[in-house]
C-alpha cells in the first residue's frame, strides 16, 4: 500500500510555544485514521497543517508521494477539509454552495452533490443558515466529497451532532470510503465511535505524537499485566502503571511474548490503550527498575 500522507519532523510554533512538534507520521492510502487527544493537544493544528491552512514552522508534508507545499494547486486538488462545526456560508442557499464548489474546483462531481442533497431530503433552495446541525454537517460533507478528494480531513466531525445525526454522518462517510477507497483523517474525542470506523490510530498529547499505528497491531502488541506491586517491571515497553498496595496493573507493549512468571496478561481495549498513553503523556512514568518485561 502506498502512503497517502507522510510527515517528517513536522512542527508548528505560535510565538514561543510549540502547538505541535517532531511529528512523524506515515498513513497508508485507503486508511481511516483517527486522531485522538485532549483539547489543546495539537489535533487541529496537525489537521490544518496537512490541509495547508497553516504553514509548518518545521518539517515537511508530502501527499501521495509528492512534497506538497501548503496551498499549492496540486495539494488543494487532492484534499478536502471539513472544519470543526462544519462551517458553511450561512447566507447561501444550498444550491449556491454547490455552485461555489463547482466554480472553485477543477474536479467537481455535480451529479454526486445533487444526489446527496436530494437523498438527505434537503431542498436546494434552503438557506444553509436554517439547516439543523446534522443537515449542515451532511451538506459540508457532501461539498467535501463532491470535490472527489483522495484525502478527506475532518476536524471533530461528529462532536456537535446528536446520536442519530452522528450515526447518519458516519454511515455516509464509511459508505464512501468503501466505494471509493478514499483516505480519511479525522479527529475526535469519542473513542467508542472511532473504534467502529477507524483502522489506524494516532494519539496526540502535549503537542507530540504519543502513539501511531494500525489499530489491530497496536491492540495485539499491548497487554494489561497484573501482578505483585513489589516487582513492577520497567523498561521501554511499560506505558503506564496503576499501583495499588499489593498489586499493580501495567499497560505494556510486549507483543505476543509470555509475561514474567507471577504476572497475568489480558488483551487491551482501544479505550484503555488510548487512556494509558494519554496518562503517560501527562505524567511520564519514571522507570522504576531495569527488570525485563517478559520472561
Amino acid at each position: 500500500m502506498s502512503a497517502a500522507l507522510v510527515t517528517r519532523g513536522l512542527g508548528r510554533r505560535y510565538r514561543s510555544t510549540w502547538a505541535l512538534q517532531d511529528c512523524d507520521l506515515e498513513v497508508p492510502a485507503g486508511a481511516v485514521i483517527a486522531l485522538v487527544g485532549p483539547n489543546g493537544a495539537g489535533k487541529t493544528t496537525l489537521l490544518q497543517l496537512v490541509a495547508g491552512l497553516q504553514r509548518p514552522s518545521a518539517g515537511s508534508i508530502s501527499l501521495f508521494g509528492e512534497l506538497a507545499p501548503a496551498q499549492s494547486p496540486q495539494a488543494l486538488a487532492q484534499l478536502a477539509f471539513v472544519a470543526q462545526d462544519h462551517p458553511v456560508y450561512r447566507r447561501f442557499r444550498v444550491s449556491d454552495l454547490l455552485h461555489l464548489g463547482r466554480s472553485l474546483n477543477r474536479t467537481w462531481d455535480q451529479d454526486f452533490a445533487e444526489r446527496r442533497i436530494a437523498e438527505l431530503g434537503i431542498s436546494p433552495r434552503q438557506r444553509t443558515g436554517r439547516l439543523s446541525g446534522g443537515q449542515q454537517a451532511q451538506v459540508a460533507l457532501a461539498l467535501a466529497l463532491a470535490k472527489r478528494p483522495r484525502l478527506l480531513i475532518l476536524d471533530e466531525p461528529v462532536a456537535s451532532l446528536d446520536p442519530l445525526a452522528r450515526r447518519e454522518f458516519l454511515q455516509v462517510l464509511m459508505g464512501t470510503v468503501a466505494g471509493e477507497g478514499l483516505t480519511v483523517l479525522l479527529s475526535s474525542h469519542n473513542i467508542a465511535e472511532l473504534e467502529r470506523v477507524c483502522d489506524h490510530l494516532v494519539v496526540v498529547a502535549g503537542g507530540r505524537v504519543q502513539l501511531a499505528g494500525d489499530v489491530d497491531s497496536l491492540l495485539g502488541d499491548h497487554r494489561v499485566l497484573t501482578g505483585p506491586s513489589a516487582g513492577v517491571p520497567g523498561g521501554p515497553g511499560v506505558v503506564h502503571v496503576d499501583q495499588a498496595d499489593r498489586h499493580a496493573h501495567v499497560v505494556a507493549r510486549i507483543g505476543p511474548a509470555e509475561p514474567l512468571p507471577g504476572w497475568q496478561a489480558r488483551p487491551i481495549g482501544l479505550e484503555e490503550l488510548v487512556l494509558a498513553y494519554l496518562r503517560r503523556a501527562r505524567e511520564p512514568w519514571p522507570v522504576p527498575s531495569e527488570m525485563e518485561l517478559s520472561a
Binding site: Q48, A51, G52, L53, Q71, P73, L76, A77, L79, A80, F81, A83, Q84, D85, P87, V88, Y89, L100, G101, L104, N105, R106, T107, A140, L143, K147
Partner: peptide
C-alpha cells in the same frame, strides 16, 4: 470559520 472552507477549495 468559513476561511477553512474557502482555503481548501481548488
Amino acid at each position: 470559520g468559513t476561511w477553512q472552507l474557502a482555503w481548501t477549495q481548488g
